[in-house]
Simulated assay, not measured.
Amino acid sequence: MIRTEALTKRFGRVTAVDAVDLEVREGDVYGFLGANGSGKTTTVRMLLGLVLATSGSIDVLDESMPGSARSVLPRVGAMVEGPGSYPHLSGRANLASFDATGADGQRRTRGRRIEEALERVGLASVDKRPVRAYSLGMRQRLGLAAAILRRPSLLVLDEPTNGLDPQGINEIRTLLLELNREGTTVFLSSHLLGEIEQMCTRVGVLDGGRLVLQDQMDALRGPTGRTEVHTPDPEQARRLLTTTAVEIESTDDASGARLLVRGLEPADLNARLVEGGVRVTQLSPERRRLEDVVLAATTSGTDRFGRDGVDA
């Protein structure tokens, strides 16, 4: 769906994007993760032909960009650097204007598609107020409605949950996953670790303009070799496992403790705890956290990345 080779963009002496090789496959929910200022938006703008690359190549939907923009862009839904709109028009009028140049078949279904797009982003009940009266979250939702209006094969979104409250973030996350299940490939640029970790099947990490990491989420968050045990009987468990390397991650009077155990297979560990009378509420292999993986791969560190709903 998206492939770049040695994609580079320089502004004078500044290299904003440095020899980036992206690979976004059909059906992916691809998380393009990077701290603010890492070059994400410049990369996205080059993918869409809004900024010309200094060097390198770009293929989108198996066609070269920006040369094939006329045939590619009608099949791509995009929202970059916030939603664009005519502030004096209503949301519906904005969507109708956006779709005005569609093919005849699209024009005949425009009204139905506008209502469906507004429904899916939570703006179905919006009145005829002009967009200038919308909140930031409402404008963000309207931008997403415009992106999905033509039922694209590929969605390219730059910080789509900016300005939304936690409930709104969850609603947009649910919508994007639904669209993906329906066949839309999603390319999601964000600096929010939690947003990427909860949604994406594949991840690319940009740091200082360089792509320092790209892999499947399952591979990045592989097992650490330890088993995670939740139990309300932490001290009893520790006494029982004195011959095993046991680490107490955290303890809480209400819910017990989270133990990290190395040296026993999960099935053997569970059997030993149950035979010893230890109550086990959860037992599973510990997996690496995306935050730790990103921290190890970048020079900027995760202090420049945000969690869901929190700007870095």
Rank of each mutant, 00 (worst) to 15 (best):
L7M: 06
R10G: 00
R13S: 15
V20D: 07
V20L: 12
L22P: 00
R25T: 04
G27Y: 09
Y30M: 02
G31D: 09
F32L: 06
A35I: 07
K40V: 03
T42Q: 08
L48I: 12
L50D: 00
V51F: 06
D59W: 12
D59H: 13
S64W: 00
P66E: 09
S68N: 14
A69W: 01
A69L: 03
L73M: 14
G77Y: 00
A78T: 12
Y86S: 05
P87R: 04
H88V: 03
L89Y: 07
N94E: 01
S97H: 06
A100P: 00
T101R: 13
G102Y: 06
A103W: 08
G105F: 10
G105K: 12
Q106T: 09
Q106I: 05
E116K: 13
L118D: 05
E119M: 09
R120V: 10
P130R: 00
P130L: 00
P130K: 05
Y134R: 00
S135E: 12
R139Q: 14
G143Y: 04
A146K: 05
A147P: 01
I148D: 05
S153L: 07
S153Y: 03
L154T: 00
L154P: 03
T161I: 15
D165K: 06
P166M: 02
G168A: 07
N170G: 10
E171T: 06
T184A: 15
T185H: 03
V186R: 08
F187D: 08
L188E: 01
L188P: 02
L192T: 02
L193W: 08
E197L: 02
E197P: 03
M199A: 11
R202G: 01
G208F: 08
R210D: 02
R210K: 10
L211R: 01
V212H: 07
L213F: 04
D215Y: 08
Q216L: 15
M217C: 08
A219F: 04
A219V: 15
L220T: 05
G222D: 13
T227P: 10
H230I: 15
Q236V: 14
Q236C: 01
R239G: 11
R239C: 04
L241A: 09
L241T: 08
A245L: 09
E249N: 01
S250A: 04
T251A: 14
D252L: 01
D253T: 06
R258E: 08
R262P: 02
G263K: 09
E265A: 11
A267R: 15
D268I: 07
D268C: 10
N270L: 14
N270C: 10
L273I: 13
V274N: 04
Q282F: 02
R289S: 15
E291T: 11
E291Q: 03
T298I: 02
T298H: 01
G309S: 14
A312C: 05
A312D: 12
